[in-house]
Simulated assay, not measured.
Amino acid sequence: MKKFGLVLTASALALAACGEEEAAEVTSEAGVEGETQAITLGATAGPYSDMLNKAIVPQLEELGYEVDVREFSDYIQPNIALDNGDLDANLFQHTVYLESFEEQHSMDLSALIMVPTAPMGIYSNVFDSIDAIEDGATIAIPNDPVNAARAFLILEDEGLIQLDPEAETLTVSEQDIIENTKNLKFQPIDAGQLPRAVEGSDLSAVPGNYALASEMDLLDALALENMPDQYRNVVAVTADNEDSELAADLVEIVESPEFEEVIDAEFEGFGKPEWMTEE
């Protein structure tokens, strides 16, 4: 079982020359008297490292944790770092990706709690509304199956296509389209290039994190996805640490009114998971 490192932050200095002793001691709510718990959290650069720094880290520090936030530029290293103990938790991925990644890489990771997530949107510099989309328009979509399925679900919600009702919702593809009312043409490209595709295509289905990283306004989208909870990002830890004090503190922080206040003020357009919207 991996253990979170403990770092002594108080020391007793023996002043032999004058025969005096001084002791500095810190009592931490996160750990044992005289000790503080140093942790490292990971996230992709952009909205989710911002979410850590603005909505989660301040409350962790109030509990006595010493927190370092490490930013990543890809979706591979954050889970590798979590699995090998370089991170104590991460925030960047949805449940579908997490489960697929740990299966492919023989890891045992656990999703603690879902957080508000930037939705995928349909953006255009050519059309100013869904109704204005012309017959035969080209739409750039993610070239990976998981995010492509999300794009097709948005298009179906907006009445632009109809998907086979027998198809698996989370894995629908172009082959599952049984009606294409606008004769849309699909242009699969790397998800990271989709913000640029807004300039080169009639339409572009841009995942929220890439939109924000490109300084796009989520509310400028012609349509935002009605995101299934499986696509909302999660705070993740290793299975060994699922029942740790840190895990419990992270869940309590995300469920707190203070967390939601920061989300409402700083993360406009982010879709909240069902547990946050239930009355």
Rank of each mutant, 00 (worst) to 15 (best):
D144V: 09
L98F: 09
T117L: 06
E61Y: 04
Y97L: 12
E61K: 04
A111F: 07
F101C: 11
A132S: 02
I141F: 07
L60E: 02
L63R: 09
I141H: 01
R70I: 14
N90A: 12
I139W: 05
N143L: 06
S124R: 03
D83W: 11
S110L: 05
V115L: 08
I122V: 15
S124Q: 00
D131C: 05
N125A: 15
V126T: 15
L63G: 06
I133S: 00
F101K: 08
D88F: 04
A132C: 04
D131M: 07
V57S: 03
Y97M: 13
A132W: 01
E99P: 14
S129M: 04
V115A: 04
S129I: 01
Q77K: 13
V67N: 07
Y123M: 01
S124A: 05
V67A: 07
V69F: 00
Y123R: 03
P119H: 05
D86K: 14
E71A: 14
L112T: 03
T138M: 13
A140R: 00
L109D: 04
F127E: 03
T117R: 01
I76L: 14
F72V: 02
D135S: 12
Q93W: 10
D144I: 11
S106C: 08
T95D: 14
A118N: 07
D68F: 00
E66Y: 15
G121A: 03
G136S: 09
Q77V: 13
S100V: 10
L98N: 08
A81R: 03
L91I: 03
G85L: 04
T138V: 13
L87Q: 05
Y65P: 05
R70G: 08
F72K: 00
E134G: 05
A111N: 05
P145N: 12
I122P: 12
Y65H: 09
T95M: 10
D108E: 09
R70S: 14
E99S: 09
D88K: 08
E102P: 15
P78Q: 09
M114H: 14
M107W: 01
I122W: 02
P116G: 08
N79A: 10
L98R: 06
P119A: 10
S106F: 05
E102Q: 15
S124K: 02
D68K: 01
Q77A: 07
D83H: 10
G64Q: 01
E103R: 09
Y75K: 09
I76F: 15
E61Q: 08
I76Y: 15
I130P: 04
P78H: 01
E99G: 13
D86E: 15
T95F: 11
I113Q: 01
A111P: 06
A140H: 00
M114Y: 14
S110A: 14
M107K: 05
N79Q: 15
A81G: 12
E99Y: 10
G85A: 06
A140C: 06
N79W: 11
T117Y: 01
P78W: 00
G64H: 02
S100E: 13
S106T: 11
V57I: 07
D74G: 06
Q77F: 09
N84A: 06
V57P: 06
I113W: 00
Q93G: 12
P58M: 01
F92H: 08
N79H: 15
E99R: 14
D128R: 02
T138N: 15
E62G: 11
T117K: 01
A140E: 01
E62Y: 10
D86S: 15
A140F: 02
